[in-house]
Amino acid sequence: MDILFVADPLESFKTYKDTTFAMMREAQARGHRIHACEPVDVLWSQGALVKARVRSITLTLTGQDDAWFTVSATDVRSLSSFDAVLMRKDPPFDSEFFYATHLLEQAEREGAKVFNKPAALRNHPEKLAILEFAEHIAPTLVTRSAQAIRDFHAEHHDIILKPLDGMGGMGIFRMKEDGLNLGAIIETLNQDGAQTVMVQRYLPAIAYGDKRVLLIDGEPVPFCLARIPQGGEVRGNLAAGGKGVAQELSEADWRIARALAPTLAARGLLLVGLDIIGDKLTEINVTSPTCFQEITQQTDCNVAQLFIDALERHCL
């Protein structure tokens, strides 16, 4: 197959942990041809197909960050000329990401097979997507009202506040019962009512990890990565210094994963990352779910292999 990865700049990859790199490595090992571009390279012109300036690449044997690929060709190709197009641009889900999904959806109309499906990417903002599955989440508030946040804190005493467009633990605050600096935190996140904020009851089970549970083609991967906060942090995100520990799914993990997987897969989400703390769902990640390498390195489960198996089922 010819596989196009729409991703961040290749030069920015940290290959020792990057999930897109793991996908590329597994695909190349099977003889598939690898191509890459950035969203900025995708364009449409009246009377023509959606195209992109792409680089055809070969992964090197070293896999080191400074020399992990070579470019064999650069060309302008229609997205429909590829067997699969993988949208792997990292968050934030901003206006440019939104526009990119529309271009990719046009490419679908022209015959391209895009994963995850562009319309599904738009319809599942990673923090708000949990609202559909409220029976699996902790007490949660989504609001622009500073007073509503104060009322929620008065009811639950220990809360987490976070912006809707953050990633990697960015902009997350914990407010304990004393409420010290709650006003300042609200001002920072809420910006006088201009920005919507998500507020959730604090879950003490975070001490045992913020678990990333992966769904591939509607099937849960049997191992998750528990991202455990370190050094007094409340955030388990690896980007915030959390320690990643692979472990088998708990009964609660299986229950949540099996409840959501069929619905999400039916909407064209080939790969999903559920975030679960204890027995509560906290986020549904669809843009560029990660943790393939950490799980594979610590278990006998080759996650990239499972993913490329699924991609082949859809495209061959």
Rank of each mutant, 00 (worst) to 15 (best):
Ala36Arg: 13
Val71Ala: 06
Asn123Leu: 11
Gly209Val: 00
Cys224His: 10
Ile284Cys: 11
Met167Pro: 13
Pro125Glu: 14
Ala29Glu: 13
Ser72Ala: 09
Val76Thr: 14
Arg150Ile: 13
Ser72Arg: 10
Arg258Asp: 12
Thr19Met: 02
Val54Ile: 03
Glu187Gln: 13
Thr299His: 09
Ile256Thr: 05
Ala52Met: 00
Tyr202Asn: 05
Ala261Asn: 07
Leu271Arg: 06
Pro9His: 07
Pro220His: 01
Pro204Cys: 06
Lys162His: 06
Ile295Leu: 01
Pro9Gly: 07
Ala207Met: 07
Val221Gln: 02
Ala7Val: 10
Pro163Gln: 03
Ala261Gln: 14
Ser95Asp: 11
Ala207Cys: 05
Lys162Trp: 04
Val76Cys: 08
Ala261His: 12
Gln195Leu: 05
Tyr208Cys: 07
Trp254Leu: 15
Arg201Ile: 00
Glu132Tyr: 15
Arg55Val: 00
Trp254Ser: 13
Ala310His: 08
Thr15Tyr: 00
Leu238Tyr: 10
Ser145Trp: 06
Phe97Ile: 01
Ala148Arg: 11
Phe115Ile: 02
Asn285His: 09
Gly241Val: 03
Leu86Tyr: 00
Asp178Cys: 03
Arg77Cys: 08
Asp83Thr: 09
Gly218Tyr: 03
Arg109Leu: 07
Gln297Lys: 14
Pro289Ser: 09
Phe152Tyr: 11
Glu105Arg: 12
Leu141Pro: 09
Asn302Asp: 15
Glu38Cys: 15
Ile276Gly: 04
Asp279Gly: 02
Glu187Trp: 05
Glu105Trp: 07
Thr58Met: 11
Arg235Cys: 03
Met1Gln: 09
Ser81Trp: 15
Arg55Lys: 15
Ile137Arg: 10
Ser145Gly: 15
Phe93Asn: 04
Leu203Glu: 02
Pro289Met: 04
Ser78Trp: 03
Asp83Arg: 07
Ala261Ser: 14
Thr58Val: 15
Ser250Ala: 09
Lys127His: 07
Asn181Glu: 10
Val40Glu: 09
Ile57Val: 11
Asp279Glu: 11
Gln293Asp: 10
Gly179Lys: 06
Ser72Trp: 02
Pro289His: 04
Glu233Phe: 05
Gly168His: 15
Ile228Asn: 08
Asn302Tyr: 10
Val199Gln: 01
Ala73Glu: 12
Arg212Gly: 05
Pro262Phe: 10
Ser45Pro: 01
Val76Ala: 09
Arg227Ile: 01
Glu177Cys: 03
Leu270His: 06
Arg267Tyr: 05
Val199Asn: 01
Thr20Arg: 02
His314Ile: 05
Asp66Met: 01
Phe97His: 14
Met1Ser: 15
